[in-house]
């Protein structure tokens, strides 16, 4: 690591100690909300470095940064790309990675999430990467773990998904340059999206004008006011002005819960069709997995303004940068 990069990655003063939903003085990554802009930029810079090593051909030179460190990826909720990407990042930095999905094991036998974590911690674990369907679980576990055990949020409920926001920002920055003053739209089911929330915090910190686009039934109350973002109910209104569009996955079961009338109507108003792509200069991001033909037309996935695969590659680089930062004090 260069001297300047190391400087930027210095620990920030603790904010709001002991609060359940924000980080304490230990080194965790629980939210983007609590992360200062300088730390974010430091992480993006480091991910640029790691990305170079991932793009290079030939066998990957494993680092020894996490040698002797054990990281448990605790995925209470299913995941393919986030889980795999964390595992690869941990191993490429020389750490020992174990992945478990307790949903199918202990929890059904009556063991609480806290018990599960205490049991694992007793085996000498240095960090937990946690995904859970309920908001606040990574912070809750961090509060109950000793200070030398780090916690990284890999997605909690509809609250935050910090590494997704970091990787999105890194790709946005790579494509658009300095993000200050840029216009970015986030389209889809905002209410149930942790990706949207982490992206809003992060993009606002970097000076981006954010517009949320979605039906009223998929926008949480007062979201514009809470996050300081604009809100629109039709994708047409943001096509011309946007530098980037982040499309979100629509959970098909929301329709049966009465949150929108039909897939056809959703696609009609919020889908990124090939016709719409022609009316915008924006680059297109999607956290995946894509419902092809609903959020995005099939042709868009392979379009040169589509960033989906770059996001996946960047995911590993960003998680390496995060792990380096977590263990660097």
């Amino acid at each position: 690591m260069t001297v300047s990069a190391r400087k930027r990655l210095q620990p920030q003063p603790p904010s709001a100690n002991g609060r359940v939903f924000s980080s304490s003085d230990r080194r965790d990554l629980l939210t983007i909300e609590a992360l200062p802009a300088e730390t974010i930029i430091g992480l993006l810079d480091r991910s640029d470095e790691y990305l170079k090593s991932l793009i290079a051909t030939g066998p990957f030179q494993k680092s020894k940064l996490l040698e002797g460190r054990t990281i448990v990826n605790l995925f209470f909720e299913n995941s393919t790309r986030t889980r795999t990407s964390f595992e690869l990042a941990e191993r490429r930095l020389g750490g020992d990675a174990v992945t478990i999905s307790p949903a199918a094991s202990s929890l059904t036998k009556g063991e609480s999430i806290l018990d599960t974590v205490h049991v694992l911690e007793a085996m000498k674990v240095d960090a937990f990467v946690v995904r859970h369907s309920a908001s606040g679980v990574p912070a809750f576990l961090a509060k109950h773990l000793p200070p030398h055990v780090h916690v990284i949020n890999a997605g909690d409920g509809a609250h935050e998904h910090p590494t997704q926001a970091l990787l999105d920002a890194a790709e946005l920055r790579a494509a658009l340059g300095n993000l200050r003053g840029k216009r970015i739209a986030i389209v889809g089911d905002i209410t149930h999206s942790r990706v949207a929330r982490s992206n809003m915090w992060l993009l606002k910190k970097l000076g981006v004008h954010v517009t949320l686009v979605g039906p009223e039934t998929l926008l949480p109350p007062s979201v514009g006011e809470v996050f300081g973002v604009a809100v629109s109910h039709n994708i047409e209104s943001v096509l011309a002005e946007s530098d980037a569009i982040i499309a979100l996955r629509i959970q098909l079961e929301r329709q049966s819960r009465g949150l929108f009338p039909s897939i056809e109507e959703y696609r009609e108003r919020y889908g990124l069709t090939i016709q719409r792509l022609a009316r915008t200069r924006a680059i297109i991001l999607h956290p995946g997995p894509v419902n092809v033909g609903i959020e995005l037309d099939h042709e868009i996935a392979s379009h040169d303004r589509s960033f989906m695969l770059r996001q996946v590659k960047r995911g590993v680089a960003v998680r390496m940068a995060v792990l380096e930062w977590i263990f660097s004090n």
Binding site: F21, S135, G136, D156, G157, A158, H159, E160, H192, S193, R194, R197, P220, P221, S222, V223, E225, V226, F227
Partner: peptide, 13 residues
């Protein structure tokens, strides 16, 4: 409660 805090935290309101 459904309100600013639930919107912020992503907790069902």
């Amino acid at each position: 409660n459904e309100g600013h805090t639930s919107t912020k935290l992503g907790i069902p309101g």
